[in-house]
Amino acid sequence: MSISIQSISKTFGAYAALENVSLEVPDGSLTALLGPSGSGKTTLLRIVAGLEFADSGPGKISFHGEDVINVPAKERGVGFVFQHYALFRHMTVAQNIAFGLSVLPRSRRPQKSEIRDRVMELLSLVKLDGLDKRRPHELSGGQRQRVALARALAIRPKVLLLDEPFGALDAQVRKDLRRWLRQFHDEIGLTTLFVTHDQEEALELSDQVVVMRNARIEQVGKPQTVYDQPRSPFVYEFLGNVNKLHSGNNVRYVRPHEIDVIFAAEYDPATDALARVQHLFSAGPIATLTVRLNDGQFLDVELSRKQLDELGLSVGDEVAVRPAEGACL
């Protein structure tokens, strides 16, 4: 089910959380709302869920063409996964997952056995078989998140909304769950909208990235597009590591991995700049160098370990740096 957001604004007192935001989320896509804190992304998600109300005015929210802006949250049929899971502490995993089904009006509520079957089915889907009788506090963060997901899916939602789903987890768990979520989404094909401030996550996971800042949308596009063709310095800076070079009134940007380092002896004044290695960090698959240019500015450069070894650099060495076939704003 596609989501169509038109001209949504939201103010909290004097503070504008969203200003005239419009967005199309295609049916079946996995879309990321990406931005720094305060950009409005969580507010937008909550408005789509019906947990907040947009300011009155021309704003519209439609699911598959049907206007839902006046539909209360409990009738919107959205699956919402909270950053801190919001599992019902006093219920077992099975009871948590069954909750949405157990509060259906009698006429629509399935039989107990049907509910049970569905719960087991969902537990399998999120790879948590056998944990049905546990309580939330007996689970790890990653497990809790998957229970929250299963719970949201139990009601067969029209759309799935995730609020910083991996924010509270360890780095490794986060990576694993990210991979798992992508696979999962491909399997079930449910339109999913998730909020994150982690650009790596947004770029890796989504079909469509929506970069937000200060209550507005800066750019929408495929991950490749927003990364390679950023429409503003903000998007460029937000989506990856950045070097900023000032010359006079101009600012030029270059990404650390788009810089080649060569021996000072091979310095070509037409394309290169001379620099001195200030700092070297090489634990890990990528080596990061900080070099100081002759005009006093600093550049961060990323090299593969292999390249670093070939150059045999240490702190204090003089080198030449040259932009690779990269984009310079």
């Binding site: 869920a49 019906g50 947990l51 949250a73 409990k74 009738e75 919107r76 049929g77 959205v78 699956g79 919402f80 909270f82 801190h84 919001a86 599992l87 019902f88 502490r89 006093h90 909750f99 949405g100 509060v103 259906l104 929250a148 719970r151 949201a152 139990a154 009601i155």
Partner: peptide, 23 residues
């Protein structure tokens, strides 16, 4: 949070209070 979760799952005020808040 838990009350909001209950609402998105379709619970009405009664459900939310007696099944989520009160316990």
């Amino acid at each position: 949070d838990q009350e909001e979760a209950a609402v998105t799952l379709g619970a009405n005020g009664w459900h939310v209070f007696f099944r989520v808040t009160l316990p």
